[in-house]
Amino acid sequence: MEVLRLRDLDTGQRARVRSMELEGSMRRRLRDIGLIEDTLVECLGASSGGSPKAFLVRGVALALRAEDSGGIWVERI
């Protein structure tokens, strides 16, 4: 089992959320969207320069900057 930061997930790779280090409103916002432990995420692609990356979370495509997606630990599957 490979555990890595969400921002290091490459296009097409899928993973499950392990834990979140984010604080405050960003944490709450992501949890409201449904990004909680055990949620399946998939990297859809990166913008030129590698940040932001787009992730598929519960059927919704979200773009997150590397600074933010670095605070989320996931387990690759």
């Binding site: 692609g45 059927g59 919704v60 495509a61």
Partner: peptide
């Protein structure tokens, strides 16, 4: 499939891709 379809993915690869986006 839910929400994001295969067609959306293909379009996004094109439209937001590193090489072709700009």
């Amino acid at each position: 499939e839910q929400g994001y379809s295969e067609r959306d993915r293909r379009l996004d690869c094109l439209v937001t891709g590193r090489r072709l986006g700009y």
